[in-house]
Nucleic acid binder design. Structure first.
Lengths: 253, 253
DNA sequence: AAGTGGTCTAGACCACTCA
DNA sequence: GAGTGGTCTAGACCACTTG
């Protein structure tokens, strides 16, 4: 019987750049992802096996495997031992990434704007010191901002930052995202631990977000860590749920 | 100068089982994770380099790398090129996994109970057919359940299931979770795409969940896919936000 | 029995960081 | 310049699924 295997057009993989700085597995993953997005690899179709793919591209099997694994983690492909690799049926969604709200908005074509409500340096109380992993009483920057998208109030952002960041520029905070300011200081965010919940808005929040009193809010509490594993930021954000939600793709390995 | 490198106790790795079915990288990852959990590897400490670890354990570098990568993905370790691998500072939390609410509750020591509110087979409308990837008008099972934890109403669970699952046993649905019933039929969940949001409760939901009218609810819309990439389940759940929230660990790679 | 993905090895070279 | 993780190769053997 004829195989249900997709013969990928050669052109799709002709442009592999071995000298550039983009890893080969990453280039392969990108090409596969695009082939899925534009329908070259339709939902449910089977890929050729890993060794054959490697031969066609002049790459080793581990390199191909890593490319495929990347798309499995994104929820685009499914692998079964003894069977093969298939494109997942159903709609394709974008996952949560380690970005800031500001960047999320900008990259989805909306216009973000920020108003600074508060920016104080105060000694850390027990809970704050615990969240940031600093000693009680050490100075921390309390930041409270209101974020707009296309002129509509979207979220109230409360952030705590430890010692090295007490002097963040208020003017820059109004125009750039917090994360881009931190990157400009050479800080690389690596891990964030987030808790997503919901609660009723306080009167103040209702007013700021232009919502009826006691309206439902989507909440995010996040601790972000840098390269060296130090806590860089503790944030407590609340969003207008009619304008914002989170997408997560979960994969069983 | 003396290195800040942890000398791991030999015992920690003595019990590697080469013949069992548990992969070596998985065994190494488990031992590292436990060493972090019990303080043998304190927050901020540096691991030895990958080749040295491999030599000590009699394993190759790729195997060690894969074990470390697993913990990096969980947010427990941080790697920097040219520097080394360190344990992340700060609290350790559990991430979201591909499990059901029923299993989450059971594994955290609480007693789940379920009431079936509805279980009808109806033809799929446009939106439902789209969510499940079936044709419009094909029969789907509409399931509506109320989930309790320790006797307290916690969530209203709306689920849609396609053709092969129309005859799920109502009695079993009351005692087991949906996912364990599906597993019993040989279905293996592989990928789920979830959207987390919030909204006000409807009068009916307020009543079911024992909340004041219009209270804030945490919502989850999920499509789950099996081994072969077929949509198996579309769920729209809402939770009491004072009793439930989601944890997500995000890693930049 | 044939074909698939899952695991593992033993090397190699490179880019980056830091003293 | 020494040491680290990042990438890549070319094999090998195994477990599992399917015909």
């Amino acid at each position: 019987m004829a195989q249900n295997v997709q013969d990928l057009p050669r052109e799709l993989f002709s442009g592999i750049d071995r000298s550039g700085s983009v890893p080969l597995y990453s280039q392969v993953a990108q090409r596969l992802e695009q082939a899925i997005a534009d329908g070259t690899l339709p939902a449910g179709s089977r890929l050729e096996n890993e060794i054959a793919l490697g031969d066609q591209l002049g790459l080793s099997r581990p390199t191909i495997r890593r490319a495929i694994q990347e798309l499995v983690d994104k929820g685009l492909l499914v692998r079964r031992r003894g069977v093969g690799t298939q494109v997942v049926h159903g709609p394709v969604t974008r996952g949560v990434e380690l970005t800031s709200l500001f960047e999320d908005l900008a990259s989805s074509g909306r216009t973000p704007r920020t108003t600074i409500l508060d920016a104080d340096v105060r000694p850390a109380d027990d809970a704050e010191a615990d969240a940031l992993g600093v000693t009680v009483g050490s100075p921390v920057l309390h930041l409270r901002r209101l974020r707009f998208a296309d002129g509509v109030p979207l979220a109230v952002l409360d952030n705590l930052l430890p010692e090295p960041f007490l002097d963040l520029d208020r003017a820059e905070l109004a125009t750039d995202g917090l994360y881009s300011l931190l990157r400009a200081r050479g800080v690389t965010m690596r891990v964030a631990k987030q808790r997503i919940g919901a609660r009723a808005a306080t009167p103040r929040e209702s007013e700021l977000l232009d919502l009826p009193p006691g309206a439902a809010l989507l909440t995010l509490a996040r601790t972000a860590f840098d390269d060296s594993g130090r806590a860089i930021e503790f944030g407590q954000h609340c969003y207008r749920p009619d304008l914002y939600s989170f997408e997560v793709t979960v994969v069983d390995r």
